[in-house]
């Protein structure tokens, strides 16, 4: 295997991981834009999506199991918003962020009791773990293409939703100027619930497509939440599409760091990048320093 194909191999593995970070970061962004809350339970949605799909897969065909898992997790997301955030409007944003950390721990514990600590995975969507496709000399699992394809479709659909539909426009209006949105007759509380549902659905879908590659277990959520958070900060909070760039960047840098540094430093690179960004450009690559996206926390 030549240097070029090795390079490509690292790049592809970076893009694959990065695209999952991107989805988590988009979830962060959707909720942040609508509510001002940084939802650190975002990674648990990914875990729940994978876990539920694996369970359902035992007696349902794979596509149905994935769809059902996404719907169940989306409803869970809505329910969590209604139970824990809707009634707490007069609490500070900081309180609500701490609640999300608490929720993350509770969801993990519930998952541990519902399932167990075993590592599970969904079957490969097409082919098996040994099948591979050669692209320019690098061998790629077909599941990688599933991940990249799904993330690309999700990003395009989400963009179209926010841009060209009544509800999407209302959602952007809420994040841009909640008072004006309210006075234009938009029910902000419902938009906030919708943002949780949508983020949860995105996370769950990511959890399903990634499951055959990275496996699913009850503890997988927290690290993903942190990487996704780093990606969201890197891209700039308040801009879901910038998260895609942030996520891919972190994924690729991480992958290449493995080739140069000991594997134990894998996570260090993401956090080093996050810290560097916070020092140098706290509003992210695409955010504006004084922009509306920066809220008081």
């Amino acid at each position: 295997m030549g240097d070029d194909s090795l390079f490509l191999q690292y790049l592809l593995s970076g893009i694959t991981k990065g695209s999952i970070y991107a989805v988590v970061a988009i979830g962060f962004n959707l909720i942040y834009s609508a509510t001002g809350v940084l939802n650190f339970a975002q990674g648990e949605f990914v875990m729940l999506g994978g876990m539920i799909a694996v369970t359902l897969c035992a007696f349902l065909p794979l596509p149905v199991a994935v769809a059902a898992a996404v719907v169940i997790v989306a409803l869970t997301g809505c329910l969590l918003e209604i139970l824990f955030f809707r009634k707490l409007r007069h609490h500070t944003i900081m309180h609500m962020i701490i609640i999300t950390i608490g929720l993350s721990i509770v969801i993990q514990e519930v998952a541990l009791h519902l399932w167990d600590e075993k590592v599970r995975s969904l079957p490969y969507f097409s082919g098996s773990e040994v099948s591979s496709i050669r692209i320019f000399g690098a061998s790629v699992s077909p599941q990688v293409l599933w991940v990249l394809g799904t993330v690309a479709v999700v990003v395009v659909l989400l963009h179209a939703f926010l841009r060209y539909t009544l509800q999407g426009r209302a959602m952007r209006a809420c994040s841009s100027n909640p008072d004006a949105a309210m006075l234009s007759g938009i029910n902000i509380s419902n938009m906030r619930t919708l943002s949780f549902g949508l983020s949860a659905a995105l996370g769950a879908l990511a959890g399903c497509v990634i499951s055959p590659i990275t496996m699913t277990h009850y503890e997988m959520g927290a690290p993903l939440a942190i990487k996704g958070f780093a990606a969201a900060i890197l891209g700039g909070l308040g801009n879901p599409m910038a998260s895609v760039v942030g996520g891919l960047l972190i994924g690729v840098i991480e992958a290449f760091s493995v080739s140069k540094l000991p594997a134990a430093y894998n996570d260090v690179t993401a956090f080093a990048l996050l810290l560097l960004m916070l020092f140098v450009r706290p509003h992210g690559l695409f955010g504006s320093p004084s922009g509306e996206s920066v809220r008081e926390v």
């Binding site: 426009r169 952007r172 209006a173 841009s176 100027n177 008072d179 004006a180 949105a181 006075l183 509306e292």
Partner: peptide, 10 residues
């Protein structure tokens, strides 16, 4: 009090 990131028409 406008939605500054959106177009005038939006």
């Amino acid at each position: 009090s406008l939605f500054l990131q959106m177009s005038v028409l939006e």
